[in-house]
Simulated assay, not measured.
Amino acid sequence: MKGWFKTESDTSRHSDKNGSLFVEEIISCSDGKYNPIRIFSSDQILKATNNFDANHIISHGRFIWYKGTIEERKALIKKWEGDHVFSPSADNAHRDIAVLSMMSSHKNVLKLLGCCVEFVKPVIVCEYADKGPLQLEDKDGTPLSWSARLKIGKEIANAVAYLHMAFPRIIINRDINPQNIFLDENGTAKLSSFCLSISIPEGESSVFDDKVFLWNIR
């Protein structure tokens, strides 16, 4: 597919830049304590998605989720929209990977399988969720039942509470919406995005972000 052929120097440059930014985010979020993260090659990602074929897309928004098979395992593959140097996104892909790696042991978070740093922005590989992103209505327009909504709300609340309490610094997600919640084959809710998350310094109860919004934990 035109546009996805990269030179060896392109791959090396992206790997070096993304690697260094990723380490910075890991240190910032977790004081440098994290589980090893599997690194996939760009060739593996392109093969899994058939060169990011539109027929593999299951969700399209600020970023695109593809279904694919990598190392004989079904997976969800997350790619940022507009990922070229002239249209930077406010989303922080490196923070997304760092926090997702810390949260992957939680049953209500989409498990991180690895990432690829050979593109302009890292591509993330996660466990497959059979029922896909949360839909508040089915295809014929029937709303999701209140009991199902309550169950999903409780499960996501569990993940958010863990995010607030389990790490040296409190982390606020700031990006919870149906598009970022996936459902597995049993209907268990899985939070998937941490790219807009922000940390509150240890010992503090609030923080200003770069848009001068005040975020606090009470």
Rank of each mutant, 00 (worst) to 15 (best):
G3F: 05
K6M: 14
S9G: 04
D10I: 05
S15A: 14
N18E: 02
F22L: 06
E24Y: 08
E25L: 06
I27A: 12
S30N: 15
D31P: 00
D31N: 15
D31G: 08
Y34N: 12
P36R: 10
I37D: 10
R38M: 12
F40T: 10
S41D: 10
I45Y: 03
A48Q: 06
T49Q: 09
N51K: 13
D53R: 11
H56T: 11
I57R: 11
W65E: 08
Y66N: 08
G68C: 07
G68P: 03
E71S: 10
E71Q: 11
E72D: 15
R73F: 03
I77N: 11
K78P: 02
E81W: 08
E81D: 10
V85H: 10
F86Y: 14
F86T: 13
S87Y: 11
S87N: 14
A90E: 14
D91N: 11
N92M: 05
H94Y: 08
L100Y: 00
S101K: 01
M102V: 01
M103K: 00
M103L: 00
S104M: 01
S104L: 01
S104Q: 04
N108M: 00
N108E: 00
L113T: 03
G114M: 06
E118N: 09
V120Q: 15
P122F: 07
P122K: 09
E127Q: 14
A129H: 09
A129Y: 08
D130T: 12
D130V: 05
L134Q: 02
Q135S: 07
Q135Y: 03
L136G: 04
L136Q: 01
L136I: 03
E137G: 02
D138R: 00
D138S: 00
K139N: 14
G141W: 02
P143M: 04
S147Q: 12
A148P: 03
A148I: 10
I152K: 00
G153Q: 04
G153L: 12
E155V: 03
I156F: 09
A157K: 07
A159G: 13
Y162S: 06
Y162A: 05
Y162N: 11
Y162P: 03
A166P: 01
P168G: 05
I171E: 10
D175L: 04
D175A: 06
D175N: 15
I176R: 13
N177F: 12
N177Y: 15
P178A: 01
Q179V: 04
Q179L: 11
Q179P: 02
N186C: 12
K190L: 13
F194I: 00
C195E: 15
S199F: 03
G203K: 10
E204K: 15
S205W: 10
S206H: 07
D210V: 13
V212T: 12
V212R: 14
L214G: 04
N216S: 15
I217P: 06
